[in-house]
Design a protein around this nucleic acid. Structure first.
Length: 506
RNA sequence: GAGCCGCUAGCUCAGUCGGUAGAGCACCUGACUUUUAAUCAGGUGGUCGUUGGUUCGAUCCCAACGCGGCUCACCA
């Protein structure tokens, strides 16, 4: 086995057109094999991380004579050599630690081997902590070993990797050299964990529902289509889990949540990736008003834990999560941020004329509900910098929401905005199967008229409602956008490890 | 899908009013046993995104295309 591996590794390199720089590294690997050294061993077990060293000695000013020995492993990022000694900066999953190597400690042979290491190589080292003249905590290395040879050189140490295309395509390089990028994804993981913990503590059950659906439902969006060969059936990648989660509430799982991907076949922008992560949750016997309070509690908890404060900034704008958060109805927001009086806004034709002045291109027979929703999005959405709940959405644009008891033209729904973006959408659920069927039929009619994003009829969902969905409120929170907000990231691509790009140009 | 901007060494960037390119880092050689973007001396490294066009000559001017960024449209 070892022989085969060495044999294959030592086959003459196919003469690709490689620069001298790249050929040098390959020759080093050949030389290692020839010297009987495996450049890719897998028998070194690190017992500590850089954080263990910091935790144990970071606060110790004067380190005693016989400190603890640490066994660490990581990637070499920097080296400063002095002939018979060298400083090396090594990075592992917890951060960076400086290693100090001396020829008289390592011996001539091992030191010579070390001198052939390159930036980017992965090494294992044994050493004891000490402080350098300048006070930096370092490990005085007694043993070091090459664990993985790197064939490609790392980006420059000072400017790092700034080419955004390379950062997204080769995220592995970005993560190696950009501590602030690592930090964003550590925070993302922490945010998701906190949400999961918060939900679980409130007795919500985490579930997973189909990503591949025969009828894409639960949102107004264009789906991706795929095909199952054995069933010879087209399937849609889900645009939302909503209808499945509510089926579970029918089934008696009356507090459920799911954190997972949705897929929407739409444009890509700093706010949109074709696949994105949502948390959706449903709570029986709750109303959309309960969920406003719930949302405040959840997001304040997450912000406090992740940032240590409720006051932070996004893109240079101060944001305060201090409660209570402001609340407007759709119409109040239009009147507040737009340039139309209350009486005119109530008049469909005058409102339509206003929409035209705003440059909105709407069909002449557009319904009043959709009309004022479009006006709201145009005049108010980007101005909602501080956390804001918007309520009183028209029934026309809310085919899955419960009608308001006092005004059936509006539904018991809110959307949550912050930093000028929609972050969440929630409503008391429509659980009257006959009403739901009529709403679906209206959507089907709209689809027949060419509305690509109108909902499909879902007969099984109606059947589920006929068994009885308890009074329920549900909400979806955009995780990527929340992470953007809490990490001050200008683009959704900065919070998604592998954002969608076109195929790489040759 | 449209508009604008960008693409030069492994990385970060200069540059050529058209005469086939430079720097810093990295790498190689040498000096150096406490550095912090270590320092000092010398050196290697490029089909200037791709394909055409104009021209005696194109990395530079023009066109198309590719990829990326931003804005707009669609949307969460």
């Amino acid at each position: 086995m070892l022989f085969q591996l060495q044999f294959s590794e030592r086959l003459p390199t196919i003469m690709e057109e490689l620069s001298e720089l790249l050929l040098q590294r390959r020759r080093k690997v050949d030389a290692l094999w020839e010297a009987g050294i495996n450049p890719y061993p897998n028998d070194f077990k690190p017992q500590h991380t850089s954080a263990d060293v910091r935790d144990a000695y970071g606060a110790v000013e004067v380190i005693e004579e016989n400190p603890q020995t640490f066994v660490v492993a990581g990637r070499i990022l920097m080296r400063r050599s002095f002939g018979k000694a060298a400083f090396v900066q090594m990075q592992d999953r917890k951060g960076r630690i400086q290693l100090y190597l001396k020829k008289d400690v390592l011996g001539d042979d091992l030191f010579a081997e070390f001198e052939d290491y390159d930036l980017g190589d992965i090494v294992g080292a044994v050493g004891t902590p000490f402080r350098t003249k300048t006070g930096e905590l370092s490990l005085a290395v007694t043993e070091i070993r090459l664990l993985t040879k790197a064939l490609l050189p790392l980006p420059e140490k000072f400017h790092g990797l700034t080419d955004v295309e390379t950062r997204y395509r080769q995220r592995y390089v970005d993560l190696i050299v950009s501590p602030e990028v690592r930090e964003v994804f550590f925070k993302r993981s922490r945010i998701v964990s906190l949400i999961r913990e918060f939900m679980t503590n409130r007795d919500f059950l985490e579930v997973e529902t189909p990503m591949m659906q025969q009828i894409p439902g639960g949102a107004t969006a264009k789906p991706f289509i795929t095909h199952h060969n054995a069933l010879d059936m087209d399937l849609y990648l889900r645009i939302a889990p909503e209808l499945y989660l509510k089926r579970l509430v029918v089934g008696g799982l009356d507090r459920v949540f799911e954190i997972n991907r949705n897929f929407r076949n739409e444009g890509i922008s700093v706010r949109h990736n074709p696949e994105f992560t949502m948390m959706e949750f449903y709570q029986a016997y709750a109303t959309f008003e309960d969920l406003m309070n719930f949302t405040e509690e959840l997001l304040c908890h997450v912000a406090q834990e992740v940032l240590g404060t409720l006051d932070f900034s996004y893109g240079g704008q101060p944001i305060s999560f201090q409660r209570p958060w402001q609340r407007f109805t759709v119409k109040e927001a239009i009147l507040h941020y737009g340039d139309i009086d209350a009486k005119s806004l109530e008049d469909r034709d005058l409102a339509y004329a206003y929409a035209q002045r705003l440059g909105l291109e709407l069909p002449e027979d557009v319904g009043y509900g959709r009309l004022i929703t479009e006006i709201f999005e145009e005049v108010a959405e980007t101005k909602l910098i501080q956390p804001t709940f918007i309520t009183n959405y028209p029934t026309e644009v809310s085919p899955l929401s419960r009608k308001n008891d006092h005004d059936p033209d509006y539904v018991d729904r809110f959307e949550f905005f912050c930093a000028g973006r929609e972050m969440a959408n929630a409503f008391s659920e429509l659980n009257d199967p006959r009403d739901q069927k009529e709403r679906f039929l209206a959507q089907v009619a709209a689809k027949a008229k060419g509305d690509e994003e109108a909902h499909y009829m879902d007969e099984d969902y109606i059947r589920a409602l006929e068994y009885g969905l308890p009074p329920t409120a549900g909400e979806g929170i955009g995780i990527d956008r929340l992470v953007m907000l809490l990490t001050d990231s200008p683009s959704i691509r900065d919070v998604i490890l592998f954002p969608q790009l076109r195929k790489e140009a040759k």
